[in-house]
Design a protein around this nucleic acid. Structure first.
Lengths: 151, 151
DNA sequence: TATTGTTATACTCTATAACTATA
DNA sequence: TATAGTTATAGAGTATAACAATA
């Protein structure tokens, strides 16, 4: 497409990213589903663990989710008793989702299985390559996003 | 999550990939849409250009699309006069989609705009880093897929 | 029997708009 | 007026099942 350069790997980065994400979604998602969670459930719960005290809008922005998308995720997690929405004492409009003890236990279980699966899928790469990948993805996401959201 | 190691960038690779793909999808997709195509339309047409003579099943496998997903894409492209489905003389079940002259012209236009947008989005990275990224994504996709599909 | 193309269908993800209660 | 949460809804993207024609 660009011309004479690449031999086999000249496909669009956009589509390669899409398919790689799709594949890793399967790999880690099936770990989460073993414990009754979707990948996105797990992502939300990880964020609640790493950065507690966020409002729902802040949480959505951090994860790159639409606030309405986050709603259904939180609804389901709350219904399962894994998350509770607490009132923010400083702003009566806001609600602060947080993990319940049961939620945190589930989160830790899934986190272990998920990262293990991720490591296995990346096992053929050098640590340096993985570091490059991680840095590039992170910077790519940051482009166009306001700073401050450090996932 | 893994423990004490990473300072800021310790998020799951899976989610980073997802969001990076999402972002690049916007970047290159809006170029395609300037010319009346979706990103996926463009991906299909690029594949038809690079590897002509594939059946629909082969095309779907190459692109990592479900065959039923490909159907609606081809339907729309055929309806717009950008693609035709020709009969395979060697297998009367099979049909070989190919670009029309109009389709190839449109494809070339979108390809130029799309790769330019991709390059711009990746402009802050070194060529070596982009090469690492491309190679890793490619290998990641290959895992679990039968060889032979070289996109 | 297996495979290609096809249709119908459903489920998930995502985004938009509008409403409510606060600020 | 602006913002946080919420609801309803619609549009993509994806996958499953079933069918016809052909191998």
């Amino acid at each position: 497409m660009t011309g004479a350069a690449g031999p086999t790997v000249d496909a669009e980065i956009t589509w390669l990213l899409h398919r790689a994400a799709q594949r890793m979604h399967v790999v880690t998602g099936e770990q989460a589903e073993k414990h009754g969670l979707s990948l996105r459930d797990h992502i939300v719960m990880s964020a609640l663990d790493k950065t507690p005290g966020m409002t729902q809008v802040e949480l959505a922005k951090t994860l790159g989710l639409d606030k309405t998308t986050l709603m259904s995720l939180l609804d389901r997690l709350e219904q399962q008793g894994l998350v509770v929405r607490r009132a923010d004492p400083r702003d009566r409009r806001a609600r602060l989702p947080e993990l319940t003890p049961a939620g945190d236990e589930r989160r830790a279980t899934v986190a272990a299985a998920s990262t293990a699966a991720e490591l296995a899928a990346l096992s053929s790469f050098s640590a340096a390559d993985v570091a490059v990948l991680r840095r590039m993805l992170f910077e790519l996401i940051g482009t166009g996003t306001d700073p401050g959201s450090c996932l």
